[in-house]
Amino acid sequence: MTELHLWLRHEVRTTERRTPIVPDDARRLIEAGVALTVEESPQRIFPVEEYEAVGCRVAPAGSWVSAPRDAVVLGLKELPDAPAELTHRHVFFGHAYKQQPGAVELLRRFAAGGGALLDLEYLVDDEGRRLAAFGFWAGYLGAALAVLQHRGRLVAPLRPTDKDELDDTLRAGAGDAGGEDFTALVIGALGRSGRGARVAFHAAGIEPTCWDLAETRDLDRRALLDHDVLVNCVLATTPVPPFVRDQDLDDLARRLRTLSDVTCDVGSPLNVLPVYDRTTEWTDPVRRLRKEPPLDLIAIDNLPSLLPRESSVDFSAALLLQLLDFTTGGPWGRCLDRFHQACRELGIEQREFRND
Rank of each mutant, 00 (worst) to 15 (best):
G178R: 01
N232M: 07
A189C: 13
G175A: 10
L230T: 06
P208E: 11
H227W: 07
R198F: 12
R217G: 00
A203P: 05
I187V: 15
E207S: 12
A197S: 14
F201E: 01
L225C: 13
L225S: 13
W211P: 01
N232A: 02
G173Y: 01
C210I: 10
G178C: 06
L230V: 14
T209R: 15
V231M: 06
V199N: 03
E180N: 00
L185M: 11
G205Q: 06
L219W: 03
L185S: 10
D218M: 03
D226P: 00
S193L: 08
G191C: 01
W211F: 10
E180V: 06
G194S: 14
G179M: 06
S193C: 15
T216V: 11
A197W: 12
G188N: 09
A214M: 06
D181K: 05
R195W: 13
L213A: 12
A223E: 09
D181C: 00
V229A: 10
L219K: 04
A184R: 05
N232R: 09
H202C: 12
G194M: 14
G205M: 02
I187W: 00
V199Q: 10
A197D: 13
A177K: 12
G196A: 15
L224M: 09
A214S: 11
I206C: 09
I206L: 14
A184K: 05
D218I: 00
T216A: 02
R198K: 15
G173V: 07
F201D: 01
R198I: 15
D228A: 12
V199E: 03
L185Y: 01
A203H: 13
H227G: 00
D220K: 02
G179W: 05
R217S: 03
W211Q: 07
G175C: 08
I187D: 07
A184T: 10
R195I: 14
L185N: 04
A189W: 01
L213F: 04
H227V: 00
T183Q: 04
A189V: 06
R192H: 15
